[in-house]
Design a protein around this nucleic acid. Structure first.
Lengths: 274, 274
DNA sequence: CCGCTTCGATACCCGTACGGTATGGGTCCG
DNA sequence: CGGACCCATACCGTACGGGTATCGAAGCGG
């Protein structure tokens, strides 16, 4: 399965073999054997190019999920033993959910059955994979930006959004703005967020990988951005103008649905009481 | 992984080996190698008994999920090719959701991009595993009875519940009943539904596996049961008395979250328009 | 138009790792 | 104390995965 996913992603046996650390002929053979075992043609090969068939595309999707599940099994099992390891790994976007995160960690630490929690801060669009492949046990996600597909969730906070501007910007004296106004501030093109597949839409604004980078770009006067109001408390030197017509942002705690960890259940219970 | 799950479920190397179709010594060795590779003790063995460690319990959970994902990948890939196979497999509880199901199938069949749909009817608590391991692509579930953990869902219908009685039962002339009344009808002990782990609670009523069996038991005057009103249309010879204080039942369509099938998306879109 | 390059498939060889049988050793029971 | 039970160890054979060398088809440039 690892072999097939590599080939399907590279669409090139040579590069896939390199990535897998094996030679190309065994890889070709392995894929042929897989096709034979399934009774299905997964790849259309010409001597110049490789293309996925319909069935191949299905197996790429499903196979990725299965490999993630396997990796998750291995990681979580390793962590379940070894007392040095943290009891729970919580993943959050760097620079987001600061207040809520601190409150949650404090409240949980005060619980009688609390275990050590490791906080893992990562970029945008990195939380879901981490949760799926077992690097993390629980995440703080933000609706409607993040997708919660396939996870159990509990809402823990909701807040309005504001447009974040460089301090002293002429518009920072405004009482409120509309989304349309915030997206068309002269000289401050809106930042571009990654799409579902990791690519970026076209446009004049900078490409964003995480919140720290984003807020620095705002401070430098290169962009403006609509974000939950609470980020204001994270950085000085930025102005925030409420945007009433932007959707409210809901912070949710999310975890893999089959999890039966008592520590996780306790953390979630704490979160719902915030 | 298959080997470990077998041993963890049987808690007996000999039986597990039998189930796996291999001899016992290679199985012992395989488990030891797994433990060594993970650097974790998974099983506490004495010469008389085998017990799971904490880490072993984690691996049993996660490993089951991973094996399901692998099986799903294999099944869905096989079905994605082979034009004889149905394009979608929809699983529903036998005897439930009759009207909604028929309406959904009709509406979907009228869509321009409809593919053949195979309907798989199964017992209670069988839908979730079927969806997870790829035997089915989409399910009709009923809240709050079924758990939708780990699936994407869309609501398609909601209805009141009624207590289903043998025709001619003295109470069948009532305009309505309370839950408390319905659960304590003399001579008609409430049926016992399976719990999450497949076992049954104690009590006088019969153990239920599917709705067909249940309705037959009602017709025979052996039990009474609170069910969504629509089941009344399925069977003649039964009476239904509304139970206003029972929770309303919501029928949802559920599917694995990572699915990207166009046919499934179309079916879901049809369902939401019902 | 012909070589050269590119890329997947084939042929062949080798080592390892998996599966099988036989047996050992600890524990509980009669 | 012997026997039954059950997991571990020892040993052996084979089959499968991986490596190298090479082929054959398809673009592409001179």
């Amino acid at each position: 399965m690892r072999y097939f996913v590599a080939v399907a992603e590279e669409l090139h046996f040579g590069r896939a073999a390199l990535r897998l650390g094996i030679a190309q002929p065994p890889l070709s053979r392995a894929i042929r054997q897989l096709e034979h075992r399934l009774g299905v043609t997964l790849l259309e090969r010409t001597s110049r190019a490789v293309a996925l068939t319909e069935a191949g595309a299905v197996l790429l999707d499903e196979g990725r999920a299965a490999l993630d599940a396997m990796a998750a099994a291995e990681r979580r099992t390793r962590r379940a033993s070894s007392p040095g390891a943290p009891g729970l790994v919580l993943v959050s976007k760097a620079g987001a959910a600061g207040e809520v995160l601190a409150k949650l960690l404090d409240a949980y630490a005060a619980e009688p059955d609390a275990v050590p929690v490791e906080v893992m801060l990562c970029g945008i669009r990195e939380q879901e994979p981490a949760l799926r492949d077992g690097r993390a046990d629980v995440a703080l996600l933000h609706l409607p930006f993040d997708s919660v597909a396939g996870f159990d969730t509990e809402e823990i906070a909701t807040e309005r959004q504001a447009v974040i501007l460089p301090a002293g910007h002429p518009l920072s004296v405004r009482e409120s703005m509309t989304v349309a106004e915030a997206l068309s501030i002269p000289g401050l093109p809106p930042a571009r967020w990654p799409l579902g597949d990791g690519s970026y839409p076209d446009g004049p604004g900078p490409e964003i990988h995480d919140h720290a980078q984003l807020l620095q770009l705002v401070a430098l006067g290169r962009t403006a951005v609509i974000l939950p109001e609470s980020v204001r408390s994270l950085v000085t030197g930025l102005a925030a103008v409420p945007v009433p017509d932007a959707p409210r942002v809901t912070t949710v705690v999310a975890w893999p649905p089959h999890s039966r960890s008592r520590a996780l259940a306790s953390l979630v219970r704490t979160a719902t009481r915030l």
